[in-house]
Amino acid sequence: MDIEQVPTKTWPRNAWYVACTPDEIDGKPLGRQICGERMVFFRGGDGKVAALDDFCPHRGAPLSLGFVQGGALVCGYHGLAMGCEGSTVAMPGQRVGGFPPIRTFPVIERYGFIWVWPGDAEAADPARLHHLEWAESDEWAYGGGLYHVACDYRLMIDNLMDLTHETYVHATSIGQKEIDEAPVKTRVVGKEVVTSRFMDGIKAPPFWQMALESAGLPGDATVDRWQVCRFSLPSHVMIEVGVALEGKGGYDADDKDKASSIVVDFITPETETSHWYFWGMARRFAVQDKALTDTIREGQGKIFGEDMEILQLQQRNLDRYPDRKLLLLNIDAGGVRSRMMIDRALAEEAGARQLTQRADTV
């Protein structure tokens, strides 16, 4: 293949993506397509997670249709058993020592998630995994879920980096007219795109009234509200949200005067028009209240379900009219800059591949 013909995708490959949660591989394998690669995840005999090409080298059946036995992944078609390193370790009535191994993918289990590196395995660096303070501290509580969304993963990033839509899509929960009226500031801070909006001296919408009361504060109080969206490669969005009693410092208020959270969004591409959306909320108030965690998870699930409906219909329209140009407004700056960061990462990967190919031809 000529250098100019090297295929490119819309996602960086040399990066850590959330692949699944531990409960999804509890005693069984999980097949999942990530960044165009069909993978199978399972827990080996030593308790460590492995990720293999979801392709049995015997007859090509998906290994994910099999089962885990003795720390190996057994194909559900003819019983070929694969080890965590991609080598065939056993098969009924057959010597398998000389079988070539299949591809494996680097994995890390950390912060309550299993992460996979779909690109060059030699480049996989655990230090490039984001530090998530809220996942390691007793001062935070977390609850979340997973949606499979039939749209380009970048549409979800656009959605999360511009929260103006809350006024219209989520009018009964977190939306309010003040979101439209507050100025939006977008900037690049280090390796993050940051979009922020602050609303002072307002009444909290229904979700935040509930949060205030759960934090031991009056739900009908006048508050200062904030939304700080942070995008980082390859496709993660952390949104700092909250309300504080008016005049107590807003975003910087003492914990006793506010209810604050981080909306957690890990967006893992599946295909060019679908992705896995791992969503949740890490909160700093009433952290021991497990019933509240369940209530917030249920409410947040409904909110993100509203987003999913819009985004999937948006994707259908874009597929129907691929040549139509879309308008850009000032509220789109966060999504635009996030896409620019993705494009730079793609260009860097393409350049590295070209250098490798040139070296191979010398």
Rank of each mutant, 00 (worst) to 15 (best):
E178I: 07
L146Q: 06
N14S: 07
P29E: 02
D26W: 08
D158F: 00
G144N: 04
D332M: 11
V149G: 00
F231G: 11
D255A: 12
D200S: 12
G145H: 08
H165K: 04
V362T: 14
I303N: 11
V241Q: 08
M341R: 10
R13K: 13
D2Y: 09
F42L: 03
T361G: 06
T88W: 00
S235T: 14
N330P: 06
I25Q: 06
V264A: 08
E192N: 12
R316G: 07
K48D: 12
P101A: 09
P218V: 02
P100R: 10
L292V: 09
I157C: 03
Y321E: 15
R103K: 13
S137K: 05
G71I: 11
D332Y: 03
I202S: 02
N14G: 08
G143E: 14
Y153C: 01
V116S: 04
L30F: 04
D307C: 06
R43I: 11
E85K: 11
C20D: 05
K9Q: 10
V68S: 07
R358V: 11
R358W: 12
C56H: 02
I114Y: 05
A72G: 04
L63F: 06
P100F: 03
V189D: 15
N317V: 15
W208T: 00
P234H: 03
M156P: 00
T268H: 03
I25W: 11
G86Q: 08
E246K: 13
A127S: 15
A50Q: 01
L355G: 12
R187E: 13
P29W: 03
I296H: 06
I262P: 00
Q33S: 06
P218Q: 06
V169T: 12
R297C: 15
Y153K: 03
F231Q: 10
V237E: 00
P206F: 06
T172E: 08
T195W: 02
R32A: 02
H236M: 14
L65P: 00
R316P: 01
M210G: 05
V336Y: 14
D138N: 14
K177Y: 13
D120H: 03
I239N: 10
L30D: 02
L311D: 05
H58F: 07
G79F: 09
M308V: 15
E349Y: 07
